[in-house]
Structures are given as structure tokens and as C-alpha cells.
């Protein structure tokens, strides 16, 4: 019921008016009472809470004080400095690399912190703590221990670890070389030019110009010069004593060798000298060792099969031997 509803629209008498006012005052007092009670309760709550809040504040302050006293804040500040130093000495590329490896680091950490793994490490840690009490083990001890089932299992684990470590190492080094390689393929210098090798190239270039065997002997010129001479199937003069310098020239022409120069004739004579001394037709080796003709020069002046060509043109038998 509200004041307005109870109040008559038009008061009839003074008493009625006073009564109405009284009734309103009562209601106002009631409302004030309600307000006062609420205020009192609030004050009461604050009174009750204040000491608690104060205690909490003091405790917090004391806590900070303890942290300060025990040096934790210093530690945190030092850690910050370390981190800063790390950052200063780490290049952007390294940071990128780290960022790239974050996932694998996370995986590694997760794998390392699995309960089973942690249990194994714990066990291993206990053993390491008592490591100073362990007896030294020699080769026989090693053999004896290897028959123990647990040791065998441990060995299997170690071997597997080693295998993976090896594999990872190989992959890492492979990646490193790939990165380092870039465009450069090999540290080895591929070719080098050596002055002494130049004539040799020329010798190779001569090869194939004129076959040493050429047409069979005797040819037209040899027949014209000395028709009585006989030759082997390979085109070597059968009787070395019948040789003359003009015969050499004729044989050179018949076999397609061409002209015999003064130096070439010298070599033919040297070969005949060796033949006279040793009784054997000299091969390239003997021509160079005993005849004093450098191997390189032999190949230059008689490009195609120098041993046989010299022997043929010098009227000697076919040289024997591999060297």
C-alpha cells in the first residue's frame, strides 16, 4: 500500500490531514531505518575486512622483502642481462635457425620428459651417485658382464642410441656440406698446365697420321735400289748386314713414312749400334737407355710405333719384349 493510495484526494478535516501526515512520517521513518541498517552493515563489513586486508598487504610487502633479501630479484635481473647478452651475440640468421628448430626442440623436450624416459634417467642418476663405489672392470669382467640379460638389454639400447646418433651426425654433416658447397663443386684443381707436357700433346696429335706398317716391303723404291733383298712378313729386312742409308730412305718412302731427316738417320744408326752391341733389336726402352735417345723424342720423330718403325728403317729384326 502506498502513501498516495491511502491519502484521500481531498482531505475533509484537519484531523484527517494530521493523521495522513503522521502516517507518511511513519513510513519515512521506516524507510530511513532500512537505510541506516544497510549503512551499519557496510561499516561493520569494512571494520571486519580492514585488518585482513592490512595483514595481506603486510604479508605481501614482507614477501617482496624476503625475495629481495634472498637475492631472487638480483638473479632475475642477472638472467635478464644474460638473455640480453645472448641476444646481442646472436645473429638474425641464428635466431631464424632457432625459430626453424623450435618444433624439433619441442619434440625433443617432450620425448625426453616422457615418464618412462624420466624413470630411466632417475635410475641412471642413482647409479651415477654411487659410481665411486663401483669396482673397475677389465676385459674378462666385460665378457662376464655381457652374459647378464640386463647388461645385454642395456647394450642393445646403447647400440640403438649410437646408431641413431651416427645417422643424425651424418645427416647434419651432409646438410652442412650442402650449405657450405654453394656453387663450388670441389676443392681440387681440375687441370694444370705443365710446360713439359706440351710436346707430349703434339706426339698424340701425330698419332694416326701415317700408319707405321704402311705398304708391304719391298716396295717400288726398295726393289729399284736393291732387288735382291728379302723381307719378313711383317716387313723387316731379313739380313741386317745388307742395310745401307739409301735403303733406309727407300724403305721410308715405300712405307709412307716420308723423308728421313738427319736426326732420324742418327737415331737409326744409334739403333744399329745397340744391335751390334747387344745382338738384339732394341725396343724403345733400350733405344733410350743404351742408345741415348729420349723416349719423348722417339715418339715425336717416329709418332706411330717408334720401336718397330726404327727397327724396320734401320734394317733390324722386329724388336721383342713388352717394354
Amino acid at each position: 500500500m502506498t502513501v498516495h493510495e491511502n491519502a484521500p484526494a481531498t482531505p475533509a478535516t484537519t484531523d484527517e490531514r494530521l493523521a495522513a501526515i503522521e502516517a507518511r512520517l511513519d513510513r519515512i521513518t521506516g524507510a530511513l531505518d532500512v537505510l541506516t541498517t544497510a549503512e551499519a552493515k557496510r561499516a561493520e563489513f569494512i571494520d571486519e575486512m580492514w585488518p585482513i586486508v592490512c595483514r595481506a598487504g603486510i604479508a605481501a610487502a614482507q614477501g617482496l622483502d624476503t625475495v629481495e633479501k634472498e637475492g631472487w630479484l638480483d638473479t632475475a635481473r642477472a638472467a635478464g642481462r644474460i638473455f640480453q647478452t645472448l641476444l646481442n651475440h646472436t645473429s638474425n640468421e641464428e635466431i631464424d635457425e632457432l625459430a626453424d628448430s623450435v618444433l624439433s626442440i619441442k619434440d625433443a623436450v617432450r620425448a625426453m620428459t616422457q615418464p618412462e624416459v624420466v624413470a630411466i634417467f632417475e635410475e641412471a642418476g642413482e647409479v651415477l651417485q654411487d659410481a665411486d663405489h663401483l669396482e673397475p672392470v677389465g676385459p674378462t669382467g666385460l665378457l662376464r658382464a655381457s652374459s647378464d640379460a640386463d647388461v645385454q638389454r642395456g647394450l642393445a639400447v646403447l647400440l640403438e642410441l649410437l646408431r641413431h646418433a651416427g645417422k643424425a651426425t651424418r645427416e647434419v654433416s651432409h646438410r652442412k656440406t650442402e650449405r657450405a658447397r654453394g656453387t663450388r663443386r670441389s676443392p681440387v684443381v681440375r687441370t694444370r698446365s705443365v710446360a713439359v707436357n706440351v710436346p707430349q700433346v703434339q706426339a698424340v696429335a701425330h698419332v694416326g697420321v701415317a700408319p707405321a706398317s704402311g705398304p708391304p716391303l719391298p716396295g717400288a723404291q726398295v726393289t729399284a735400289l736393291a732387288p735382291e733383298l728379302t723381307f719378313t712378313g711383317d716387313g723387316f729386312l731379313t739380313d741386317a748386314d745388307k742395310w745401307t742409308e739409301p735403303l733406309a730412305t727407300a724403305m721410308a718412302a715405300d712405307t709412307g713414312f716420308g723423308n728421313v731427316s738427319a736426326r732420324q738417320m742418327e737415331i737409326l744408326l744409334a739403333a744399329r749400334k745397340v744391335y751390334g752391341e747387344t745382338g738384339a733389336s732394341p725396343n724403345i726402352r733400350r733405344l733410350s737407355v743404351r742408345g741415348g735417345v729420349p723416349v719423348r723424342e722417339l715418339y715425336q720423330l717416329f709418332p706411330q710405333a717408334p720401336g718397330k718403325t726404327v727397327a724396320r728403317l734401320a734394317g733390324l729384326p722386329k724388336p721383342a719384349g713388352c717394354v
Binding site: P215, P216, G233, D234
Partner: peptide, 10 residues
């Protein structure tokens, strides 16, 4: 006399 062919070039 037969042809002397100590080697046969291809």
C-alpha cells in the same frame, strides 16, 4: 709378301 698389320686401326 703379305701386308704388315701389327695393329688394325678401326
Amino acid at each position: 709378301m703379305s701386308a704388315a698389320q701389327p695393329h688394325v686401326p678401326s
